[in-house]
Amino acid sequence: MGRKVLILNQDYSALSICSVPKAFLLVYLNKAELVAESDLYKLHTVRDEFPMPTVIRLHRYINLPYKGVMLTRQNIFKRDGHRCQYCGTHEDLTLDHVQPKSRGGKTNWDNLATACKRCNSRKGDYTPEEANMKLRQRPFKPSFLMFLRDFSGTVDASWMPFLVSKRERIYD
Rank of each mutant, 00 (worst) to 15 (best):
L40K: 13
L40G: 02
L43A: 06
H44F: 08
T45G: 09
T45M: 07
T45N: 00
V46C: 07
V46H: 13
V46W: 09
V46E: 15
E49I: 15
F50P: 00
F50K: 00
P51L: 02
M52I: 07
P53F: 02
T54R: 02
R57G: 03
R57V: 03
L58N: 05
H59Y: 10
H59Q: 06
R60S: 10
R60A: 11
R60V: 10
Y61E: 06
I62E: 14
I62A: 14
N63P: 14
N63W: 11
N63V: 13
L64M: 13
P65W: 10
Y66K: 15
Y66R: 15
K67H: 13
G68L: 01
V69T: 08
V69N: 09
M70C: 06
L71E: 06
T72Y: 14
T72C: 10
R73I: 02
Q74L: 06
Q74Y: 12
N75G: 01
N75Q: 09
I76M: 12
F77V: 11
F77I: 11
K78T: 05
D80R: 10
G81P: 05
H82A: 04
R83N: 07
R83A: 06
C84S: 09
Q85W: 05
Y86P: 00
Y86G: 04
C87R: 04
C87D: 08
T89G: 01
E91L: 15
E91P: 00
D92H: 13
D92Y: 15
L93D: 12
L93M: 04
T94W: 08
D96A: 14
D96C: 14
H97N: 10
V98A: 12
V98D: 07
V98P: 05
Q99T: 15
Q99W: 05
Q99P: 01
Q99S: 12
P100Q: 04
P100T: 02
S102A: 15
R103P: 01
G104F: 10
K106N: 07
N108I: 09
N108S: 15
N108Y: 06
W109R: 02
